[in-house]
Amino acid sequence: MPNLSFTAPTTVDEAVRMLAGGAGLAKPLSGGTDLLVQLRSGRMRPEAIVDIKRIPGLIGIREEAGEFVIGAATPGVMLSAHKAFEHAWPGIVEGADLIGSQQIQGRASLAGNLCNASPAADSVPAMIAARATCVIAGPNGRRTAPVEAIVIGPGRTSLEKGEFIVEFHVPKPKPHQSDAYLRFIPRTEMDIAVVGCGVNVTLDGNGVCTDARVVLGAVAPTQVIVEDAAKALIGHRLDEITNAALDAAAQRACKPITDKRGTIEYRTKVAGVLARRAAKLAFERAGAR
C-alpha cells in the first residue's frame, strides 16, 4: 500500500470531498472490523481511508420526530446500552449484538455491517424488517433510501462514488408491534451467520397479526424480504398451521449456495426453522405490549 492516505474529517462535506476526490478507491472507515481485515489480507487496496467517526452526529442515538436516529458509525455497545431503543426494537439490537465478539462490538457499526454488503450481515435483516431508512451524503447532497436498497450483491452496494451513509432512521414501534432476530451458527459465538432471520410483526388486541415483515439473511446474494412469509402471518395467530405456512414460505424464498459454512439443503431447511422461532419471539414480544 505505497500510496494509502488516512484522514479524519470533522464535517460531512469534507468527508464527501475526500471520498470523491481521488481517482482510486476511497473507503469510509467507521468501526473498521471488516475494512481492516480486507486491507490486511490484500483483498481491498484503497488509496484513501476516510475516518468518519470524528464528524459530529456520526456516533450516537437520538430520538426526533417519532423516530430513532442512529449515527452511521455508532458501535454495537452503544446500541445495546440505549435502553429506549433496545426496548423499542429488541430484534435490531439482537442482530447488531451478534456481530462478532464483545471486542468487535466496541467498534462495529450498522453502516459498516450494511456496506460490507455480506448477505450474512447480522444487523441487516431486522433493520429491513423494521422498515428502517438511511440518509446518504454524497457529492450531489443528501438522499434517503430504504435499507434494503443499499446492498445489490455480495460485496456490492448501490452507493455512488463519494457517497457514504450518515445516519439511519428507524420509526418507533406501533402498539403491539415488536421484532426478533435469530441466526444460526455452528458455535455459540464468533461465526458468520449460516442463516439469519428477522421478523417484525404488529398484532391486534387479540393476538392476530395485522402487519408483518420477514427478512432472511445468508440464503441469497442479498437479504430477502419474504412477502409470502408476511402473507402467511397477516390475519393469523401463530398456530401450527400458520407456522407451517411460514416455514414453507421461508424455505421457498431461499436461493442459497453451498459453501464452507453450509449447504443449500441445510440453509433452506434452517431458514424455515429460524423463521418459526423468530416469529414466536416477535409475537410474544408484541403481545406483551
Partner: peptide, 20 residues
C-alpha cells in the same frame, strides 16, 4: 485486546492513526 475510551477492542482492527 485493549481498552479504548472505555470500550474493549481488538487493536489489530484499529488503525494507529485512529488513536489520536
Amino acid at each position: 485486546t485493549v481498552i479504548c475510551d472505555g470500550n474493549m477492542v481488538c487493536s489489530c482492527l484499529m488503525l494507529g492513526a485512529e488513536a489520536e
